[in-house]
Nucleic acid binder design. Structure first.
Lengths: 226, 226
DNA sequence: TTATCCCTGACAGGCAACTGACAGTAAGCA
DNA sequence: TGCTTACTGTCAGTTGCCTGTCAGGGATAA
């Protein structure tokens, strides 16, 4: 993890620096507000630890400046003050958390890690299935092939999702009936065939490489990757 | 904003409940851990305020359970204890912030708002939302399409704002009823349909590319950008 | 060829979504 | 107070899409 520490007091800076490095985190120290802003702009940091009392500008300003410029790196404010209004003001200008000096290093570490963990959680989780140039976004309920959006009905989507969950694997009609329709036994129907045909018409349009494969006597599958 | 308050002491719950409502936030109170977990699963909340001492299970467990299930709603822990280890443990099991009782209501409010702001940071809250040639200015409460100003009623605006907050995402009728009308359960009405129709008549006028999309069986969405 | 297995166009029933009409309510104004 | 206007929510009739069945024809293996 990469930490930007904006702190002008050498003793405090050194203390935090060494502590974080001992935990195998990368640390860069800025000793003034403007230096902190410039460094933050490089976008290399996972979290910013920001002292409020700086020689050239107040920590609030640093915070505000970064947020105004669209920088959302999590910020942990360090304050010597215990006044409630200061804490509130800090949070209002865009800080994500604060810690009152003197603090326990373990607590600093726990809070930094909580902040980073949290900000990483928003890294888009892959709810997207992909086979060749075909993608299925489970969240947006959207299917695309080669960049073109394809409109599918509920049942079509359910079947495609099932097949895409294990590309290359053969799914029997019974299995599909079971998973998509919830039937526990074969009601002697050919719905599956019909829907596979409908899926083919939408996905394997003429000119494209066919992805939906029939395994005679067994069922259907999507072309395995590679 | 929608707050889930997990607190068994009626006096505390009532105090927070009334305070948040006065700030125009929606509040749902759960008086036990399991009830809290169940309610959280509905995914309707922007933030969870969680007391540690609950009748059926410890707040840590609630927290851990939610995180294990992939729920990343920001959690603010309320604790009567001041011990450092408790704070650290809370953060370790996935809480995002804590507050020690007794607390000042203003500070609770500031922290809740900071948490929510942070969690929304990936959808930066610009006062102007835009999808294709459709814009919504939250400050001026003005909607334009292709340069023409469109007059919307309060409800129409609320629905549009919700849909524009996540273009491409499907919003169920239930979700819309919840966010716009504040209903916690489906009152078997088709108001949403009616308002969508009214919105369409104003926004997707003939000759324009339709933006308001119906996803049969699921709900509505705005055309995703691109 | 024959027996299976699979594909697909046509069709009807059902249900989700749409929409026009209407009544109740609130706000603005004389 | 009465009048007007705009907004809101309900309802019922209609539309249009989704779904599953069926039958005839095509493909494949023995």
């Amino acid at each position: 993890m990469n930490v930007l520490l904006v702190e002008d007091e050498p003793r405090v800076a050194d203390f935090i620096d060494r502590g974080l490095r001992a935990e195998n985190h990368g640390v860069t120290v800025a000793s003034s507000g403007s230096e902190g802003v410039d460094l933050a702009k490089t976008g290399e940091f996972d979290v910013i630890v920001l002292d409020l009392m700086l020689p050239d500008m107040h920590g609030y300003e640093v915070c505000q400046k970064l947020r105004q410029e669209g920088d959302h790196t999590p910020i942990l404010m360090l304050t010597a003050m215990d006044a409630l209004e200061d804490k509130i003001k800090g949070l209002k200008v865009g800080a994500d958390d604060y810690l009152t000096k003197p603090f326990d290093f373990d607590e600093l570490l726990a809070r930094i890690e909580a902040l980073v963990r949290r900000s990483h959680q928003f890294a888009p989780k892959s709810s997207i299935l992909q086979v060749a140039d075909l993608t299925l976004d489970r969240e947006l309920l959207e299917v695309q092939r080669g960049g073109d959006t394809i409109k599918l009905t509920a049942k079509e989507l359910a079947i495609l999702e099932l097949l895409m969950s294990a590309p290359g694997r053969v799914f029997s009609r019974t299995r599909i009936l079971n998973q998509v329709w919830g039937y526990s036994e074969d009601p002697l129907t050919n719905v599956v065939d019909v829907y596979i045909a409908r899926l083919r018409r939408k996905i394997d349009t003429p000119g494209r490489e066919p992805l939906l494969d029939t395994v005679r006597g067994h069922g259907y599958r999507l072309k395995a990757p590679g």
